[in-house]
Design a protein around this nucleic acid. Structure first.
Lengths: 125, 125
DNA sequence: TATACCAGTATACTTTGAGAAACCGGGTAA
DNA sequence: TTACCCGGTTTCTCAAAGTATACTGGTATA
């Protein structure tokens, strides 16, 4: 497993293309985790507390249960959300943004800041 | 045109869903601009100076002229790259990361940092 | 007894992103 | 004169992402 951290400010001039592709991997991970049509909406929904499956679905108009199910699995797999199954009858399921999930905050804020500035930049031309 | 800036740390509790979707737009812009298979590679290529079309294509193994052409147009449209046409015979074309394009740095670094940490987080489980 | 809720699955379909290959007009070097 | 370089564009194809719709088994409600 590769554990090299690069300094993006100051890349080694002899960086091979292979190494460069390695360096792109973490960037892609971040983009994949936040990209797609529904991920951000789900993350924001969970940001405001534990929610049940249908509860999230009602909060996000247009999302199908298939997509919600799939995206929640992705979040869980990445340790960003936690799934709680309550042994009631019928079972109820709750999802929660994990503590680790909250570390996304700085990235999301940075993306939002740049995006906002960009909208102004583009429309001011 | 909407110019509201939200404080992601501290969202108004009465935020309507419409307003929330408005708030997502800049986030999506950032993700769209950096997402996809080739954008980051092209941006990094241009980071090291003006390049000609074929030069970029040679630097990025696997990219087709169709994709490169399309992505460069996107970058240009977003004012991130500048296209210089030289009146030589035959004409030569150069692309350069604009000064504005360099403002992407902080977002990219943030994405890289989170992604790197995430790889460690996931593999350490 | 019939209907609706819950937490999803299953299946089929459409849309989008990307790749492969051919092609273009103008130029240049063998 | 033939073949190749340059900066792309065009057409066709395929896979992935996303949508639509129906369904499940168990329970509560009218």
């Amino acid at each position: 497993m590769d554990t090299t951290d690069y300094d993006l400010e100051n890349l080694p001039p002899d960086l091979s293309y292979e190494d460069f592709l390695q360096m792109l991997l973490p960037l892609r991970d971040s983009l994949d985790i936040l990209g797609g049509k529904w991920k951000l909406q789900i993350i924001f929904s969970l940001k405001f507390g534990r929610k049940r499956f249908k509860e999230i679905q009602r909060e996000i108009p247009g999302i199908t249960s298939k997509m919600l199910s799939k995206e929640l699995k992705d979040l869980e797999m990445n340790d960003l959300a936690t799934r709680y199954v309550h042994n009631t009858a019928p079972i109820t399921v709750e999802y929660e943004l994990s503590e680790y999930g909250k570390t996304l905050k700085s990235v999301v804020i940075e993306l939002y800041k740049w995006g906002s500035a960009h909208r102004k930049h583009i429309t001011s031309k």
